[in-house]
């Protein structure tokens, strides 16, 4: 395989978890909820996907468990935000801390138990590449982009969801159940993020480690902002970040004198620069984003 092919393959592979998480985040943000708990939902997906995959021997069942685990954490966020009317930002950060605690602790306990009972090392089965060196999850992630676009921009349900994000009071007045809509959006966002997390523990490494998502949820969050809250823009941003991280790995492997930190910083710096200079106030953000209703 030549260098360009290898690089493209790596860019898609690294971009997959970002793409999955970002598509979910996009749906929820368009409904007006800023989900900082995305990192926690990914971590939940990575851990429970790993455990289920390891327990059943099937990566597919692992991915299904990840989907449910991510959705469960997002459901908790939705209850906090929609029922208790807690602040979205603080609740999201709290869920990140809790998810880091639960998965880290449970994994260490599981590992201790496993190693004590004579196991060698804790590994899960992985998804095998199906087409062009990519696994099923990567293809699912790519396929989800037009689907999410169609749902948000062309379907009646998507129109309702966007109305909820722009002006919840008006949406409620025209007969849309704002809480139900946001709750469903949160479930979808959690499921997407969980699947993105499962990709990390069932496709890239077959193992889990404490805090293995390592800020990828926040990169996905940045991609949504940079993609101006559109499905195509967000997907482009995710794949661009995937390419940047793939380039970092390639430079390191080639022993080039390029500081990897510069490329690691790229998603965050680029997002801030875009917000300040390019997007100005035309960010495309829903009017009611982050506001309680």
């Amino acid at each position: 395989m030549d260098l360009a092919q290898e690089f493209t393959s790596a860019a898609f592979r690294i971009g997959t978890p970002l793409l999955l998480a970002a598509m979910g985040e996009l749906i929820l943000e368009r409904a007006g909820v800023l989900n900082l708990g995305i990192e926690g939902a990914m971590l939940f997906g990575a851990f429970f996907g790993f455990v289920a995959g390891w327990g059943t021997g099937s990566p597919l069942l692992g991915a299904a468990a990840a989907l449910l685990a991510g959705a469960a954490l997002a459901a908790l966020l939705a209850v906090m935000v929609l029922r208790v009317k807690a602040d979205q930002i603080v609740a999201g950060m709290a869920l990140n801390l809790a998810a880091l605690g639960i998965t880290g602790t449970a994994y260490r306990a599981l590992e201790n138990h496993f190693l004590r009972s004579g196991g060698a090392s804790l590994l899960a089965p992985t998804f095998a590449p199906v087409l062009f060196e990519q696994t099923l999850l990567t293809w699912a992630a790519l396929l989800s982009v037009p689907l999410v676009w169609y749902y948000l921009e062309r379907s009646e349900r998507g129109l309702e969801l966007r109305a909820v994000g722009e002006n919840p009071a008006a949406a409620e007045a025209s007969g849309v159940n704002v809480s139900a809509c946001r709750f469903k959006a949160a479930l979808a966002a959690g499921a997407f993020a969980g699947l993105g997390g499962a990709f990390l523990s069932l496709s890239q490494t077959a193992s889990f480690s404490s805090n293995c998502t390592n800020g990828r949820g926040f990169v996905a969050l940045a991609a949504v902002v940079l993609g101006r809250y559109s499905a195509w823009g967000t997907a482009a941003a995710c794949l661009f970040f995937g390419a940047a991280f793939a380039a970092r790995d390639r430079f390191q492997a080639a022993g080039w004198n390029v500081q990897p930190e510069v490329l690691e910083m790229l998603p965050y710096v680029l997002t801030l620069l875009a917000l300040v200079f390019a997007l100005r106030r035309r960010t495309g953000a829903p009017a009611a984003l982050g506001k309680p209703y």
Binding site: A94, L95, L97, A98, L100, G101, G104, T105
Partner: peptide
């Protein structure tokens, strides 16, 4: 890591 869990739940 259990501390993170406690902190998250406290919030």
């Amino acid at each position: 890591e259990v501390v993170y869990l406690i902190e998250g739940l406290v919030i």
